[in-house]
Design a protein around this nucleic acid. Structure first.
Lengths: 125, 125, 125, 125
DNA sequence: GTGGTCTAGACCACG
DNA sequence: GTGGTCTAGACCACG
């Protein structure tokens, strides 16, 4: 488990944790069925409070990523529900649009933005 | 100025305002040099608190979108500073990556996600 | 809002709160669209910690009962998603079975148990 | 003794054990006076910790279901104390009410819920 | 005023 | 050892 806290990141600590875990899952460096470190272990290794790590784990559980059971470590869920509903798609599209608009308005050159989008498209192959 | 509050939108009110203004700017329905409604006017027409509109305007100013002067209406900035720095690009890339990862982990079909990304690429032409 | 903490109840405090709010919703004494007391208010009136009330609210949000937004009070959701899936039904059936089995094994007279079940059936009319 | 651990069941292991034993008792496939497997045996056959099985047996004893004696196997109690007290009935009623409320609030169709309740009524005949 | 995040520390319940 | 609940208190972000 290689997680880091980025002091310059504006997002709350617990969301930094969830997003890093999600990325590791997505990249394959973390596999379904494997265990996460215990709340206390991870808190200590990151130098933050136990409850903050717990918030991250609760969020991951609510997102359907992990499973929490009393007395056991958190486990990455095996089954992912392939929810193909419109609500999800609408939300993702709105977020993408927002990022692209922000990039353009803050003066990012279109060619650079195109390159970044292509990079994400490459992840889907 | 056609702005609306979406009660079903989970984002804070002030961000709903900034993102709509940004979109109008980006689409050309709002032009550099033009004036925004006064804080009081906009708050009243939207039925929300003046503080909230004020927060939105402050955010737009911090994003370099508008100019605020005491006793005058907010004005859309003419010059867009072409800040091509690495920091900006890194931030945009991280946000794009986050959205794509979320989409994949919540089970969106890659072909649908590809379609959404292509749609954004089209905006750059 | 009439909520009470029952010291003799074994369940955690936050679940006592959620179940009372659910019952009031179900009985019609609490209506969709109405506001819940603020976390701090309810905590004070119950003589418990703010965070405990917050846990209850978070659970209600996860159950799709209320909506939480920064700076605003919690609001009872209007739309209820009519999820008719098998998983839900299986879970409810298992819980019903468990209660009935427990009643029988601890010696409750079948005629009394029948009466209790009839009482619940009456709620569905 | 046919007990199984269901990994997809969210309840603690010891409660999975007690509920299965209760069901077998209730269905007649386990009879008063018969012996349960030793803690060690059951733990091994289920591939779980001895403490966990021990917790289950203690719970069953507290519920008046079995009798534990040092150095001997647990035995299903013959006499069921017909405790007709109000406390018991109140507890059962509260649990029934909770399940029915949950079903209604999560959107289960009343006709389906009625069917489930009828099914339990059938067990009392 | 209201919810959101974080820390610190205690004690309980399950394995 | 591990997650779950609760308290106490601080400070931040939104309306």
């Amino acid at each position: 488990m290689l997680l880091t806290i980025d002091e310059s990141d504006n997002r709350p600590l617990y969301l930094q944790i969830t997003s890093q875990i999600k990325e590791q899952l997505s990249s394959g460096s973390l596999l379904p069925g494997s265990e996460l470190p215990s709340v206390r272990e991870l808190a200590e290794s990151l130098g933050i409070n136990m409850h903050t790590v717990r918030s991250a784990y609760l969020k991951l559980r609510d997102d359907g990523i992990i499973r929490l059971r009393l007395g056991r470590r958190a486990v990455i869920n095996r089954s992912r529900q392939h929810q193909n509903d419109v609500a999800l798609e609408t939300g993702i599209e709105a977020r993408l649009k927002e990022v692209v608009t922000d990039a353009l308005l803050t003066g990012m050159a279109p060619e650079n933005l195109r390159r970044l989008l292509m990079k994400q498209l490459d992840r889907l192959k």
